[in-house]
C-alpha cells in the first residue's frame, strides 16, 4: 500500500520556530477535541471495536516513537520508571505511579492520575483510554524487549478518580 501519512517524529515539526509567540503549549481541550472527534468519525466508519483497535495501535506507534526520542535506554526498571514519570509530568501527560511491578513474571500495575485523555470527563460507564493502553504497551515493550498487553481496569469515565492499567507480558 502506498503510504501518504506514515508517521515520523520529524512530522512534529520545529515548534519553536513555527510558534514563536504562542510557544509549545496548548490547552487540554484542544487535544481532547481532536481525539474525540476522530473517535466519533472513525467509529461511524468502522464501528466500535475497530475504533478501539485503531486507537490502541496508534497509541503503540506513539509510545514507541516517544520511547525512542524521550527515554534514555536503560535496563533498570526503576530508572526507566523515574525517567517516564519525569517526562510525563514535564509534558503534562499525567502523574504516573507504579503500584506493583514484577518484571520476571512480566506483570505490572500502573496508575495515571490527571490523565490527559479522560480525567474530568463525564461518567460514561466504560473505559476510554485505549490510546493510553497502546502507548503504555509500546513503552514497556521498548524497555523490556517483550510485547505487553495493557488493559485499563479503572478509569475516570467509569467513576474512578485515577486510571489504573494492568500490563502483562505476552511471553514472560
Amino acid at each position: 500500500m502506498e503510504r501518504k501519512y506514515e508517521f515520523s517524529w520529524d512530522l512534529l515539526g520545529d515548534i519553536g520556530a513555527g510558534r514563536p509567540n504562542l510557544g509549545n503549549v496548548t490547552r487540554v481541550e484542544v487535544y481532547r477535541l481532536m481525539q474525540f472527534t476522530f473517535r466519533d468519525i472513525i467509529e461511524k466508519h468502522v464501528g466500535v471495536q475497530e475504533t478501539d483497535e485503531i486507537f490502541y495501535e496508534a497509541g503503540k506507534l506513539a509510545g514507541s516513537a516517544f520511547y525512542q526520542h524521550m527515554i534514555t535506554k536503560n535496563d533498570d526498571l526503576n530508572n526507566f520508571v523515574n525517567q517516564l514519570k519525569a517526562v510525563m509530568r514535564e509534558l503534562g501527560m499525567g502523574i504516573l505511579r507504579v503500584e506493583q511491578a514484577d518484571m520476571e513474571k512480566g506483570e505490572l500495575t500502573l496508575t495515571v492520575s490527571e490523565d490527559l485523555d479522560c480525567s474530568g470527563l463525564p461518567e460514561q460507564g466504560y473505559e476510554i483510554c485505549t490510546y493510553d493502553e497502546g502507548f503504555i504497551s509500546a513503552l514497556l515493550e521498548n524497555f523490556s524487549g517483550k510485547p505487553f498487553i495493557v488493559k485499563e481496569i479503572d478509569c475516570w469515565c467509569t467513576g474512578d478518580r485515577t486510571c489504573r492499567f494492568s500490563a502483562k507480558a505476552v511471553n514472560p
Binding site: 496508575t111 479503572d154 474512578d160 478518580r161 485515577t162
Partner: peptide
Amino acid sequence: GKGYVLGAMKSLQASLRN
C-alpha cells in the same frame, strides 16, 4: 464497583500501593 466514593478509595489504595 464504581462511583465517586469508591473511586476515591481506589485512588487512596493506588497511592498506598505506589
